[in-house]
Design a protein around this nucleic acid. Structure first.
Lengths: 218, 218
DNA sequence: CAAAATCTAAGTGTATCGCTTAGTGGCTTT
DNA sequence: AAAGCCACTAAGCGATACACTTAGATTTTG
């Protein structure tokens, strides 16, 4: 089996050297090093690696943007983000950009090797602390709604929920009226009652209420 | 230190006996057993436990609903869900209902003891496999938007995004106009352009678009 | 049975929608 | 330098929706 080819994209020499010393072995070759996005593209023109270890903060392009562009052009390359940031938005953006994994910079040699194996085999890898951040956010987001004692089914009537659902799904009043065989005026009345009961002021809040309470799928 | 008082709410005798045999010790007392919601309320009338181990599927009320009611009436009691279900929606509902932790029924004695300690000390506990499910869902949800080539920042201008954000946050046209020192007509124009570009037909779709693309927090 | 809630509908003034036209300023293409 | 494109600005206009009010009919609840 040929060694795994990895490109380091990281603007700090000392970090590149450290990583190289840590993971280079008979099985793993650091086939290139880039300190900017531009340098990375030059390396990719010559030879494609199996994995790119990508820092987020680079001098020219951001690592997130680079990840997006690289995975678009070379879907076979696995990008592993190696970042000092643990903000959820970065993690989220990285996933969206096509990263196959996310490691914090306080990761260990062992974890990095596991991450490399994991993404090479086609799976995603998110280190423990990153997973914890995602988990924590999930729980907090879910809890946000705990204090909303307002269970729609208790406050709103069946008809009102029916109309709220249709409205939030995107039907306009006329369409709702036609489908339910009632007057537009009645649909308006129901919506007014709903807004009064929920103390909402705009239709935008109405849509968001429906989404928060899982009345519709977004 | 007095022993930890735990009530088992679980409709299968054999499971209750198994759990009891597993965790009862000098430190942990099973202070009561309920096979239905009704029985649980009777137990709570007599004596309050530190922890309730709660099954989701019960004959009368669902464990989720029971959790909601119990944590509302007795916030000091920690409810630990012990379920055979690993659907994300159950987990999510459990968190919303006020559960302090969620264990799968294939959990180990050790994990259950850790969970009990964790929730007693005021923290949340979600077992490894439950965490993995949440994580997997998070990543999949984040990835859903990858293939949506429509990155708002590429399609919409800065001004358009600014207005879309404000609209989706709940500002009405007049408020947006006032805040940006432009005419209400201009705000309308921008919104029209946005809807044309995104091929959206209603303002409801506009709000949902903004939410899907993380332009606003719901 | 009486009271309350729900479903239905309409009136009214204001706001927004959805479409069209249009002027100005900045940038790129030829 | 001229032409073309796009972003931002603004307005006209008919149709629709909003937000509030009143109100009758029916069903549910106490």
């Amino acid at each position: 089996m040929p060694p795994i080819k990895i490109i380091l994209t990281e603007d700090h020499q000392i970090l590149r050297d450290g990583i190289k010393a840590l993971i280079a072995s008979a099985n793993i070759t650091i086939s290139g090093e880039a300190s900017t996005g531009q340098e990375l593209w030059k390396l990719l023109d010559k030879d494609l690696p199996d994995i790119i270890l990508m820092d987020i903060s680079l001098p020219d392009t951001s690592g997130i943007e680079l990840t997006r562009l690289v995975t678009e052009k070379y879907p076979e390359i696995k990008v592993l983000i190696l970042s000092m940031y643990t903000d959820e938005s970065f993690i989220n953006q990285a996933i969206k950009a096509g990263a196959k994994g996310y490691l914090h910079k306080n990761t260990t040699r062992e974890e990095m090797l596991v991450a490399i194996d994991t993404v090479l085999s086609g799976n995603d890898f998110y280190s423990d602390n990153i997973s914890k951040i995602i988990l924590k956010n999930y729980i907090e987001k879910a809890k946000l709604n705990i204090n909303e004692i307002d269970n729609p089914n208790e406050i709103l009537s069946k008809r009102e929920i029916e109309i709220l659902k249709m409205f939030a799904e995107g039907f306009i009043n006329k369409e709702i009226a036609d489908r339910l065989f009632i007057s537009i005026r009645t649909v308006e009345s129901h919506k007014n009652h709903i807004m009064q009961k929920l103390n909402l002021k705009t239709q935008v809040e109405l849509v968001k209420y429906a989404i928060r309470h899982n009345l519709i799928n977004i």
